[in-house]
Amino acid sequence: MLSALIAGLATGALYAAAALVYNVMFSTSKVLSVTTGHTAMLGGVFGAWFLQAFALPLPVALLGSMAIGALLGALTDFVAIRRVLARSDEHLWLLSTLALATMVQQAVALWWGTEPKPFPRIIPQEFGAGVFDQKYWLPVAVAIALAIGLELFYRGTLYGKLFVAMSEDIFAARARGIPTERIRMFSYVMAGAMGGLAGFAAGQLTFAYFALGLTLTLNGFIALAVGGLGSNLGALVGGAALGILSSIATYYVGGEFQQTISVGLLMLVLLLKPEGLFGTRNVRPV
């Protein structure tokens, strides 16, 4: 039971990290990108490739996977967001990011193969460590570190304040002379690097697997919607709740109904509290 809980917490931390990536992208563009989970998938796949095929030292491999994730973030902004946001049609970005995500996933499937491949040990540790195994604690530590880092970034730095300003009112921000295009690009690069880091840290838990991206996009979104859009604390709580709930359900009912239960949680929260646990209520546009 305890090991199931810990495994659930670790998976939930990965979902929480994906939700944080959503949050960063959403803050500057009001776009929920389908490529969110794919940044983490790339982090895991390229991390395994760097560590195994090239035997790169750990910091280099880590930075490399973060750079790949950041590249996908930049690509998302450059290809899928920039042109589409200029148009007034509301949900075109959903189509364009979905298309980009599909292309990335299929390209990785063709190149890397469709089988999950193991991710090497990062820190030397015995395999019999049980619940203290690094594969459980690395994602949790990374998710918490990312959330704290984001809070500090938003409160303490000029760029963080620019993000907040753009999420409040993008037109006012532009009128005050903020280069909104450049800040948005920066936020996507940052979000991509965060996704790459999370995918790298959780690599031993999820394996380097091409289809992880879509699962993470969905479950990260569920964590985000449960916790409340735009709230970093909500992302952590929502992710942990989702991970632990589905692992408890797996423990009692069996692994076959995992997705059903997590979507059930999403529907329940959306019906009872549509803005999520820590979100702000949306005003209906008229």
Binding site: R83, V84, L92, A99, A101, T102, M103, Q106, L110
Partner: peptide, 19 residues
């Protein structure tokens, strides 16, 4: 052989160029 990559590319092109 490209399969879904091709569909993704097509979707992207249509959304960007010919919505």
């Amino acid at each position: 052989k490209l399969g879904n990559f091709f569909y993704g590319l097509l979707l992207l092109l249509v959304v960007l160029l010919l919505p």
